[in-house]
Each structure stands twice: as C-alpha cells, then as structure tokens.
Amino acid sequence: MSLELNNIGVAYGTKQILSNITTDTIKPGSLIALLGQNGAGKSTFVKSLAGLIPYQGKACLEGMELAKMHQRERLKNIGYVPQTLPQSNSLLAYEVIKSAASAFPQHNQEKVIEEVFERLNIAHLALYPMHKLSGGQRQMISLAQALVRHPKLYLLDEPTSALDLNWQMQVLNTIREEVKSHNAIALLISHDINLALRYCDQVILLHQGNILSIGTPKNSLTTEHLAQAYKVEARIETCSQGHPIVLVDRPI
C-alpha cells in the first residue's frame, strides 16, 4: 500500500489552511513524522486525510482516492487517532476497543482485541470503566481503537502527548512494529522532535500550511529550517547511539 499526495489543500471558508502539499510516493512500511509549530496545519492535514474535513487535490492510497472511499473501505484502510482523548465515561475499556473492532468485523475478533491489549501492556485495564483511567491510559485506549483494525494508513495526531517517557517509547515501538510488520504507513504528529527523529523514517516539516522540508530526519532538519519553522536557535547533533538529536539553545 503506497500513499500519494498531490497538491493537497484545505480551506476553512475563505481561509486557506494548507496548500500545495505534495510528496513523492510514500512506500509501505514508512513511519513519517509531521512536525511544525502550533497552527502550522498538521492536525488539519491528518483530519483531511481521515475524511473529517474536505480537501482539494489528490490523496491516493494504493490508487484509491481517499475522499471517494466508501465507509467500509475507509474503516478497513484508515486508522485515525485524534488529538482529543476518549471521553471519561462508564464504558469499559474493553467495550471501547470492541466497538472499534466491530466497525470492521474480522476473523478471530476476540483474539485480535486481546492481542492489542497485550501489545500495549494494558490488559489489566480492560475491565475498568473509562472514568477510572488516567488521561494517559485513555490515550492508550484511543491508539488501541486504531490498532485493533490493522489499517493500512495510520493518522496519529499526537498519540503520546499524555504519556510518560516509558509509555511514549513503548507506544512508538508498537507503532513502528505495526507499520513494519503489516506494511502500513503512519503519519505521526508530535511536538517531541527528538522522539520523532528516533522512530520515524521520514520527516515532513510544515510551516504556515506549506511543506518547508521533507526527507530523512538527517536531511530535512537543518538549523535554518528549525529557525524558520519553530523560531528557535537550535543545533542538530548525533547521540552516542547514532540518532540525530535537536538541542534548542534559545527562542529567536
């Protein structure tokens, strides 16, 4: 499953939020970080691909135009994890995942649900009502809602924003494993640049609704780009394990 984005634009009324988002063909098994300052258009971009808001241009997943997909195809192919946490209510965590799995019934559904709980290490939370879970735990449930359907395109809007360091790494490991083992594609929004650089294969840096740079983490993130996109003076160095790390010195 490859993803092609050609001249994607999104407007709210007369206000153009995104314009001319074009990428080379994104290959299966890619985990792509969407970076940019607040208001750069990251969430709007993934929401438009998820079908929550209309877009102009062409976005094709394995040749199928996303905007023209039927509900069933969309449920099968796209897993969107919104920025907002699932609500605190009396639904059991198991029921939340089960209802998401029922959206596209699969063979061995119970086993698939159980596997997702185990992969995320949250099996002990399964029979708790959502109002008993912390924000971070509810965020895990939100991710599990997408994982349980094994979609081909993951659209993840800050899926680790409410998690501690340990959980952030576990979740990103799980997402990476899922993407690689199922030949899926994931677009991941994050404000934690270093974490994104560590796990993602490519980076798309957005600035004022346009792509500022795109490519491998090493190539696409430069001090100039960071200065323009985030308005910070920063250095890009390499840690002892060979990962690029961004060190921010001061705001500009």
């Binding site: 079908g51 969107y80 919104p82 639904l91 029922s102």
Partner: peptide, 17 residues
C-alpha cells in the same frame, strides 16, 4: 453501535465513518 462509539467522542465517531 453508533451511539456507543459516539459516547467515546465525536472525533472518534467521525473517524469510524
């Protein structure tokens, strides 16, 4: 089913079509 999904949140429900 739809109402149960809606109970999780509006965006969650929309994302499930």
């Amino acid at each position: 089913w739809s109402m149960t999904i809606l109970r999780s949140g509006e965006e969650q429900a929309q994302s499930m079509g």
